[in-house]
Nucleic acid binder design. Structure first.
Lengths: 221, 221
DNA sequence: GTCTATACAACGATAGAC
DNA sequence: GTCTATCGTTGTATAGAC
């Protein structure tokens, strides 16, 4: 596993060059560019030329690194699914619906604010039938079933209303993701862009209150 | 306003042929095909070839009727905005939030069930910054402001909670449109497609209850 | 008015130079 | 390993035949 013959030990000049150092930097830039372009134009609409332009490479250069447009897209999708799973979390069910749902809503809202492009890619892929996303959703499906079971338990314990657990999750996703997917419409109707920290906190509070009341989570939940 | 010189008066053989009869039939087929393809592939991703295939025409034939891909897309967008405005309705404000919001939610849900493709086109156009939709949104913006004022009046009358009126509208749109835009995901997690009349009524009831509780509309609202 | 043959630009991708 | 020159295909659109 030696990388190369040894070399002088200057601190400012790394002795060994990790394989694909340029590659790693390139791929990071490419991923960022791909997310931006796929979010704006969709999978079919995005061109490798546009992604190359945003990443600052020639189209041919890009193709060398990505293999194919579909492979690049799949990588991006996988990253987004990983985010989705990382944010999802009903493990601490014993804290009750107010805390668990509230925290989840906050994480989803922050994700919508910070990574709207990723949310839009997920939305667009779902809208076209999710042909490339579906095979990556196994874990998401299991986690969703588990979360639904947790909600059912809360209902049985009298901590919230007997809403349909799965539909409640849909509604949470709908409202929180709306702030990413429809960001432009929201800015249009509000007359200003999604604003500073304080504004975001207001939105999170409003959404949280709306959902918890909708789910019938009382003061004691 | 005479259409042509007179002709025999057989009932089963129209005397005059309205100008562009073939054209009207073609345009109807083209619109339906365009909605399907734009919804699946987005504006950039949709090809005139694909639309022509679905409509059952040659690509060149299609181009004769549509002028350009952008013109076709704009026409579809205008139709969708017209739908949006027709469904929106807060004129009967005196009936109170329970009835007005409930009826509106029902109309939105039925639209999501019956025209998911149209909802998706609207979503995709919004996600990419709505460059071609924005100029068509003047009326929608006015109606939205009026609706927000109505909600404010309800709040002042103590008929519902002091939620942010605009955000409440966003949340209604988010939840109802979710059943169109994320239809495939919903089917995936529920393990079955959006079902029959009874299933749809259940979903409408669940969404309506969720929103009205979230808005703090009491029994008397 | 309707449709076919065709133009030419942009697409994703790769063989081969460096 | 990296990148450039170039390929074959498909894209939107139109001139001109019917």
């Amino acid at each position: 596993m030696t990388t190369a013959a040894a070399a002088p030990a200057h601190d400012d000049a790394p002795v060994t060059r990790p394989p694909g150092r340029i590659r790693a930097r390139m791929l990071a830039a490419i991923d960022a560019a791909a997310i931006e372009v796929f979010a704006r134009d969709g999978y079919q609409g995005a061109t490798t030329q546009a992604i190359a332009d945003v990443a600052g490479l020639s189209k041919a250069q890009l193709h060398y690194y990505i293999g194919s447009k579909e492979a690049l897209y799949q990588r991006v999708l996988q990253d987004i699914v990983d985010d989705w799973i990382a944010i999802f979390g009903f493990a601490d069910a014993h804290h009750g619906p107010r805390k668990v749902l509230g925290d989840y809503i906050r994480r989803k809202m922050l994700y919508s604010f910070e990574h709207p492009a990723r949310s839009r890619i997920f939305a667009a892929e779902t809208m076209r039938g999710a042909p490339l996303l579906r095979p990556l959703m196994g874990t998401s499906q299991r986690r969703t079933s588990q979360a639904a079971a947790v909600i059912t338990a809360w209902i049985d314990a009298g901590l919230m209303r007997p809403v349909d657990p799965l539909l409640l999750l849909f509604h949470i996703w709908a409202v929180t993701q709306h702030y990413a997917d429809y960001e432009h419409q929201i800015a249009f109707f509000r007359g200003r862009a999604l604003g500073d920290e304080a504004d975001r906190e207001r939105l999170i509070a409003e959404v949280t209150g709306f959902v918890l009341r909708g789910a019938g989570v009382g003061e004691g939940g």
